[in-house]
Structure formats: C-alpha cells, structure tokens
Design a binder for these strands. Structure first.
Lengths: 190, 190, 190, 190
DNA sequence: CGATAAACGAGACGGTACGTCCGGTCTTGTC
DNA sequence: GACAAGACCGGACGTACCGTCTCGTTTATCG
C-alpha cells in the first residue's frame, strides 16, 4: 500500500527538515509515488503530517501509565518518561511539527486532539480518578485541570525553545500539583 | 515612518488570514511600501510577524500584575485577565500565529522568548519571590516552575483549539498551585 | 461492440472540444468503457482520433467523383462538394484535428495518408488519367501535381483560419488548373 | 532581455523535439529563466512558439521575390527557394510546429496569418499584379487564387509527411498555373 | 538654492513549491 | 475471463510567493 510509504517518507523528512521545510514533492519523491496519490487521500500537508505522526510510529500510541498504588510516584515516572522523549531531537521536531500543523489548520487540530491529545488526557484522568477513589487525592481534586497542567507545562518548555524540560522539572511539577506551594504551616497557624 | 505602516499591515493581515496565509507581498501592498523596504529591516516573514505582534500593539506589553498583599488573589486576577484576552478571536489568532512563527524559525523563537515570554515569566517570578519573602509561599517553592505551570496550562488550552480557557480554569489552576491536590487530611493523619 | 462506442465518443468529443482539449478519460467515460479497453486497440490518443475521423463516419469514406465525360465540370462539382463540407463547423474541426494529429505523431500521419489522403489522390489521379486518355488533358499533364494543387489549395484556406473556401474559390482553382493564367493571346502572338 | 533568451530557447527546442514534445518548463530551464517570466509575456505555449518562429529568426522574414521582368521565371525561382528551405529538417519541423500551433489556438492562427502568411501572400500578389499590368498574365487572372495555389500545394506536400516537395514539383506547379493542363490544341481545334 | 545621494515604490526576475490534470499502465472486483 | 472502474506513476501545467535585483522618483543633506 502506497499509503504506508507516504507516511513513512513524511515521517523521515519531518525529522530531517522540520515542518516548514517539508514539501509534498519531496514526500512523493521519497515515497516513490505520484503527487496525486497523496492528494487523493489527504487534503493538505498538515493532514499528512498529522497522520504521519500518529501512524508512522513517530509518536508511540501511548506511554503506559503505571499503577503501583502510589499516584505521585506513578505520575512522576510517567511524566519523566515523556520528558525524556521530548528532550531528543526527534521528540522536539515532532512536537514543533505537530504544533505548527495545529496552528496552520483547524481540521488537523481536531484530528490531533481526538487521536493524540484526548487519549493522553483520558489516560491521566482515569488514573487520577482511581487515586481519588483510593483517597490519595482530595475529594474535590480538579482532575481535568491537573491533566492539563501536567501536559501544558511540559509543552510550554518545548515550545519556548529555550532549555528543554528535565527530569527535575517533571518531578517539581508533580510535587507542586500534589502539595501546592502555599505556606501550609503559616496557613495552619492562622 | 514606513516601519509602522508595515507592522500595522502585518498585524491586520495576521488577524485576518492567520500566519500561514500571510504573505510579504500582501503586507507590502497593504502598507503601500516596496518589498525591499521590508527586507531592509527584517530578515524573514517570521521576523516581521514577531515584531508586529510585539510592537503593533497586538499584545499589550505587559498585563500588570497587582500586589494587594495576597498572592493567590493577585495571581488569580492576573491569570483571569490573560484568559479573557486569549478568549477573543484576536487573542487566539495572535497565539496561534506566534506559535507557528516560533515553530517555523529558531531566531524568531529566541526573539519572542526575550521580548514576550521571558518578561512575563520575570513578572511572575518577581511577584512570587515577594510572596515567598512575605511568607505566603513555602520557603522551598519552585518559583520558575510555578510560572511555567501557570503560563503553560493556559497556552495548552488555546493550542488544543477545543474549549478555550475560562475564568474558572484560571481559578482552578491558581488554587491547585497553592494548595495542591494531595489528600492532606489523610497525609496529616499518618 | 465497445469499439464503435469509443469511436463515436471520440468523434463527438472531437467536434465539441477540438483535438487539444480531448482526453482519453473523457472518451472512456462517454463511451461507458474502461480506459484499458481503449489501449487494448489503439496505441495512443492520436491513433484513436485518426480512426475516429476515418471510421466514425466523420469523414465519409470518399466523395464520389462523377464521370460525365467533361473533366472540368466533374472536378468542379467534386471540389465544390468538398468545399461545402469544409465550410461547416464540423468539417473545419475535423480538418484541424486531423492536422494536429498529423503534426503530433508520425505514425498517425502515415495512417491518415494511407486511408484518407492517398485514396483521395488516387481517385483524382484515376479520373484525370481517364481525361488524359480521352484527350481532354494535355498529353504531358502532371496528374499528381494537379491532384496536389486541388487538395492543397483548399486545405490551405482552412488551415489559415481566415475566410473558409467558397464555391467560387473551387471554380477558380479548377479553371486555373485547366486554362492557366499566362497571357495566351500575347504568347501566341509571339 | 530575457525575452530573447526565451525565444531562442523555444526555437532550439522546437527544432530538437517538435511542437508536442516542447514544454514550457524546458524553455524556461534552457533560457535560464523563471516560468513566470514566460507567462508574463505570452498567454500560452502556442503563442511563444508563434513568436519564436517569427522573431527567433527561424523563418527569415521574407524570401525576396525577384523581378527580372519574366514572371514565370521569377515565381519558379522563388518557389524553388522556398522548397529548398522546407526540405531541410529545420524547415519541416517549423512548418509542422506552426501548423500544430495554428490548429491548437485560434489567436495564434490569427497572429501567424497577420505576420507570416499574409505578408507572403501580399508579396506574391504584388508581383503578380505587376505581371498582369505588364501583360504577362491574362487580364482576368485570379491573383489571390494563384497565390493560394502556390503556397497551398507546397504546404500540402509537407503536411502529408510523405515525400517532401522537390524543385521539380515547384516547377510543375508554376508551369501549371501559367499554362494550365487543358488540351489546348484540341480545344483550339473545336 | 541647487546638486547629490540615500531611501523608497514599483515591480521584473530566477526559483521553488503548490495543487491540478492527463497519458498510459496495472489492479481489483463484478458479471 | 472479459471488462468497468479507477488507483497509480510520472510529468507538465499555470499560479503563488519568496527573496534579490534593477529602475526611476521623491526626499533630505550638504556645498
């Protein structure tokens, strides 16, 4: 199936050149395919890129979220695993490309949300919900907000293109989310 | 000064068409300027866009961060103010355009970081530091991480292009950052 | 037989759109036939067009050349009959298409010559030969040249795409070929 | 001026490959020019070809028509000169290309008529008119028809792509036009 | 005040990529 | 087993922009 050759070529070129330097002609040439075959199945460059990221095993479907019974440890492990991925050249290129595709094309944004973002959010929410039931989270913990904070803070570090996130950053965010930074002793003292 | 006409035209077109559909020819035509005049001052389309966003009073230099003595209230107010801006069509276009420009061009990413991201982080850090000194924050509060979490979680909501962030979201994030979501009573009970 | 459907479709489209705007896909669609069925029998678009013109009763095989005993009258009638055909929109399209196909493809040129041009020349030559034997033509009359002159001069009028040839033109050419335009009286007088 | 480079490249490629195998991309590449520069000045491939033939000194503006006082000799010389040109590979390519362009595009046909065909016809007509006044032609000689016959019969030989016209053919046509082929003795005898 | 040059608008230019079209080949599924 | 339907590769099309490069024409400075 030429579909796979196209996605593979798109993935390779994406990592080699980045989103903006990626051309449909180059994908077609690398995949040994006519351009029309690409346009038969995808509406735009951004759509090909989104599919390539999701199916071209660029982004492994889901990093599994362990359940050892300790939610803080589990989330820390999971976020560090993601962080390590994002720190590689490939991971950074991938995030930048997907972000550019998202900003470029509304339809692509929706596709990526359904097939990449939303599943990750769901994974986090499910695990957090288990923790809340197990009494490890406050009964009124805003689960979706926590999921967004964990993802968003790491994404932000990548997009700012300054220092990429480290394992330490992951730990700090997780700890912050669980313990907060308000001065408890003082507050308790009041 | 034609410089201002260029930035104004770039800003207008950016909001009308978005980053990908923006062309140098269109900016030159709208500004009543020759293309060479644009290239005399900026190196690329992304550079013009970055400047237009920063100087074309698209993004007001800084939303002031109030200091009422209560850090949680102050941050909440500040984040809600930002949220309201991001919710407008213009605000969303701006963020998407700046994100695309960032993903497109490393030099632009650096410029934007220096003149947009970094000042906001600094503003937050300064205020948080005051709060820490005033004993409203835990002595070991990870100030840069907090700043990143606040910005990143809001940015994430905009980029995912699903539901834009609301005032409620802002409140939840601020409360989360201060109080955490771990089950304190249980933990205290141990 | 799908062969006839193909030739019919080709003929119709040829008259509707002209040679350059004619596509194999359109012929296949109009004929209700797969493209492969066309290529099973013809080598190229130009070959289909040539056949369509010759067999798709676009150009009736031969306009009969009458033999009343008076060669000048007979040729005049025949050339006027041709002229009337060429003057119609269909006739003009046909000539233009065949000319384009001829200029396009050497093999087609040969086919057309064998099955269209050459038979017409032969028809003329046979009739002229009869006339020569009957003493209506000079003994040394260049029969092939005469045939070429009659055909060529009409063809030229069509190809120049200015005024199409008229019955008067046909008469003048025939008279010229028989009587010449040299000043006979003067010449005889010498 | 890039215009000249384009016409030169078009002329060379026309002679190398023929009209149908000629592409705008190839012209642009050979001329060292962007495609847009071609489209800025010509509307279609056929228009470029027409101009290239007329200005790219492919077809020398006019073969001069001598005036020695003997119209038959002069016309014979002129037609033989043309014949020699058409017999070369270049001449044949030129005629086929111009014919294809004419059949392809009405506007081109008009241009070619005005700048190539019509001047040649005029040249012939002027010379024939002089001859008629000088008493070398019959008073009622159909001058335009004669011009058309001379051109058309040679053109026909080239387009049929069988034997190209020879000097003999030219002589025969000229003699035919002046003396006719009717059996004068018999006719006179009647 | 008039010369001289810098900055400018206009837009042609060489290029690269776009998204479309079509020719001719190959594959699939139906009748 | 023949055929319609149409995917497929290749390659040309005509368009849109890029960033560079002349061209005159204002402006603005200085002689």
């Amino acid at each position: 199936m030429s579909r796979l050759a196209i996605l593979g070529a798109a993935r390779d070129l994406l990592l080699e050149r980045g989103y903006e330097r990626l051309t449909i002609d180059a994908i077609a040439a690398r995949a040994g395919v006519g351009k029309q075959t690409i346009y038969r199945w995808w509406a735009s460059k951004s759509a090909v890129v989104a599919d390539a990221a999701l199916e071209g095993d660029l982004a492994p479907p889901l990093v599994p979220l362990p359940d050892t019974g300790d939610i803080e440890t589990d989330l820390g492990d999971w976020l560090r695993a993601w962080t390590e991925r994002l720190t590689t050249a490939e991971g950074t290129s991938l995030i930048l490309a997907l972000t550019a595709a998202t900003a470029d094309d509304r339809a692509v944004a929706d596709t990526l949300y359904d097939r990449f973002t939303q599943p990750h959010e769901q994974l986090l929410r499910d695990r957090l919900e288990l923790a809340r039931v197990a009494g490890q989270l406050a009964p009124d913990a805003p689960v979706p907000t926590i999921a967004g904070v964990l993802i968003g803070s790491m994404l932000y570090r990548v997009l700012s293109r300054q220092a990429p996130p480290t394992a330490d950053d992951a730990n700090l965010v997780v700890r912050l989310v669980f313990n907060g930074s308000g001065n408890r002793s003082r507050r308790t003292g009041v």
